[in-house]
Nucleic acid binder design. Structure first.
Length: 554
RNA sequence: GCGCCUGUAGCUCAGAUGGAUAGAGCAACGGACUUCUAAUCCGUAGGUCGCAGGUUCGAAUCCUGCCAGGCGUACCA
């Protein structure tokens, strides 16, 4: 529809120029927008105001000339007017909206899909939590955002792959192993002082118990390094398995789980380091090896090899991001916690140093989640091991409520997640509000079937019966859906779809309360069923992008 | 100190590329169930868009300076 209007305006402007009513043929991009206020029409354009300086004419005069030359072959316009400083407002014939319904029914689950991605190979890496403990709510938000972004990009014609990077190397893992080993020794009766920087959670004791069961007291006889290593591998392996399970029950799957250790094993980190040396992008100082990230916009240079000979995480991250490009991805998106934002410039620097464009690298910084219960903060501390896991949250409120709530905010905005609200079945909790639309429509269809309406097919006469303001409003709202999806993809902002769904749900509930779908007139009933089934499709379509289910019954 | 993010109704938040009278939900108040699920709807009330300048036909949106909050500023991960 928007496209049609755009063409209409452009050819009108051209017509006005040919007729000598506009001095210049230089036209800016025609921007058509839907005004917020209904009395300003279905669409409006500011073209006359933008052209004013080019044409050297007052905006309202330009608007006049354009309107005069609009040729409306399909008779979609009911009215045009010039308003304010020079807006052209266009009012669409009510019945001209009806084609949207046919489009939705024809395209079904594909309604709103597009090819703006052009098959571009794009990778979304998210969660990537260290395998040193269970996932908590913050990871859940990252998972919901990353997964939804991937879904939306896929829907818009990108070739998307989802990846989880496992930090299964380095000191953190060693600390994990040490933590388990110490608890294990404790179980065998040794008195030990448990260090503060070790992992405190109860899950560590459970691993120690399992190790004791399978290995008895044999581990204590080995040398400590290999015993710790054994514990580390054992614990990390189990934690990863749990993380996979938790994410699966959250509806999140990955195309690939990429191991950091494998970057070392395959020599990719060494290759990067020798390559950096060869290209003189690194230098030695104070016994350490520094990457000249400053040359690429970072505020200071960064260490890749410490003076004790060990590589930093940055070193493997360079290799990892390099490997992403080597695998053919043209665009890479990392979903990180907001506390990592200081890390962006150095990764961006390394990417640029390797000849890629900084634009090919995006970071979605997800702000933290405050967990509440009935308005009271829930104590969260990873250090002491007192935290509510993602698993607990899913168990308590269900995956749908959790995912939806995670996506009700711009990711850059901190989010309060109240467990009590997430369980509420009122308007305070938008998940049910949206899902309820789907269930309600399903219920209407069931009821209709009882009354003998076995199927709903397209019937133009029935569709022509749809003239109520609430009906036209619903159709207009649905007509906007494809555009919402495209913005959501372009800006990588899934919350736009969440808000759209709440708006569509609101339009539907208002309509439902005012008009009966199963009316006395069979023709009208047919038209209205056709309408609400379109709503049902759009709701399901959007919920699917967010990874939320659309129930037939509630 | 420097850098990033945030500041919009009592509360929680939307407001892409600058547009006309800044919008939802909650809370408050008043209404609507013999009818397709009241997990719903309708109405009332609520605003110096942190502050001050600037840019222009036009600013919540762009620029500058300040104020407040969060985070980051490791040879940590």
């Amino acid at each position: 529809m928007k496209q049609k209007i755009q063409n209409l305006i452009l050819s009108a402007a051209t017509g006005a120029y040919k007729n000598g009513e506009l001095p210049s043929s230089e036209f800016p991009d025609v921007e058509i927008e839907a005004p917020k206020i209904e009395s300003h029409g279905d669409f409006s354009t500011n073209i006359a105001m933008i052209m004013a300086s080019i044409q050297k004419m007052p905006p309202r005069k330009i608007a006049e000339a354009i309107i005069k030359h609009i040729v409306d072959h399909d008779k979609i316009l009911a009215k045009t007017e010039i308003a304010g400083p020079g807006f052209i407002n266009l009012f669409i014939n009510k019945t001209s909206w009806h084609f949207v319904l046919r489009k939705i029914h024809e395209e079904g689950a594909e309604y709103g899909a597009s090819s703006i991605g052009n098959g571009k190979k794009i990778q979304v890496e998210f969660v990537s939590s260290n395998p040193t403990g269970p996932l908590h709510v913050g990871h859940g938000r990252g998972a919901a955002v990353g997964d939804a972004v991937a879904n939306i990009l896929l829907f818009c014609g990108y070739d998307v792959k989802k990846e989880y990077y496992i930090n299964d190397s380095g000191r953190q893992i060693n600390t994990l192993g040490l933590s388990v080993f110490l608890r294990y020794k404790e179980l065998l009766g040794e008195k030990i002082e448990f260090p503060e920087n070790c992992y405190q959670g109860d899950y560590i004791r459970e691993f120690a118990e399992e190790v004791r069961k399978s290995r008895g007291n044999k581990l204590i006889e080995e040398d400590e390094a290999s015993a710790v290593n054994y514990c580390a591998r054992y614990a990390a392996g189990n934690i990863i398995d749990d993380i996979k399970k938790d994410l699966k029950s959250f509806g999140v799957t990955f195309d690939r789980w990429y191991s950091e250790q494998s970057l070392y094993d395959s020599g990719k980190v060494d290759n990067v380091l020798s390559d950096l040396r060869k290209r003189k992008l690194v230098y030695e100082k104070d016994g350490a090896l520094w990457f000249k990230t400053r040359d690429y916009g970072d505020e200071k240079d960064r260490v890749v090899v410490r003076n004790n000979g060990l590589t930093t995480y940055f070193a493997s991250d360079i290799a990892y991001h390099q490997d992403k490009f080597d695998r053919g991805f043209e665009q890479i998106i990392d979903v990180w916690g907001a506390d990592h934002h200081g890390y962006i410039p150095r990764i961006a620097a390394s990417i640029e140093a390797y000849g890629h464009n900084k634009d090919q690298f995006n970071v979605i910084l997800v702000q933290l989640v405050n967990l509440l219960r009935g308005g009271e903060p829930v104590a969260m501390s990873t250090r002491t091991g007192e935290f509510v896991t993602l698993k607990d949250v899913i168990k308590e409120v269900g995956p749908d409520a959790a995912r939806f709530i995670f996506l009700t905010r711009h990711y850059e905005s901190p989010l309060d997640f109240d467990l009590e609200v997430a369980k509420k079945k009122t308007n305070e909790n938008p998940v049910f509000y949206v899902q309820y639309v789907h269930a309600r429509i399903s219920s209407i269809v069931r009821k209709g079937r009882e009354m003998g309406i076995s199927s709903v097919t397209r019937d133009d006469k029935a569709i022509a019966m749809l003239k109520e303001p609430e009906e036209i409003h619903l159709i207009k709202t649905m007509a906007r859906y494809p555009e919402v999806v495209r913005y959501s993809a372009r800006l990588m902002e899934p919350h736009r779809i969440t808000f759209y769904l709440m708006e569509l749900a609101s339009s539907f509930h208002a309509y439902y309360n005012k008009h009966r779908v199963l009316a006395d007139d069979p023709l009208l009933t047919g038209g209205r069923l056709y309408l609400v089934l379109a709503v049902k499709k759009v709701i399901k379509n959007g919920l699917t992008l967010l990874g939320v289910s659309a129930p037939e019954k509630m």
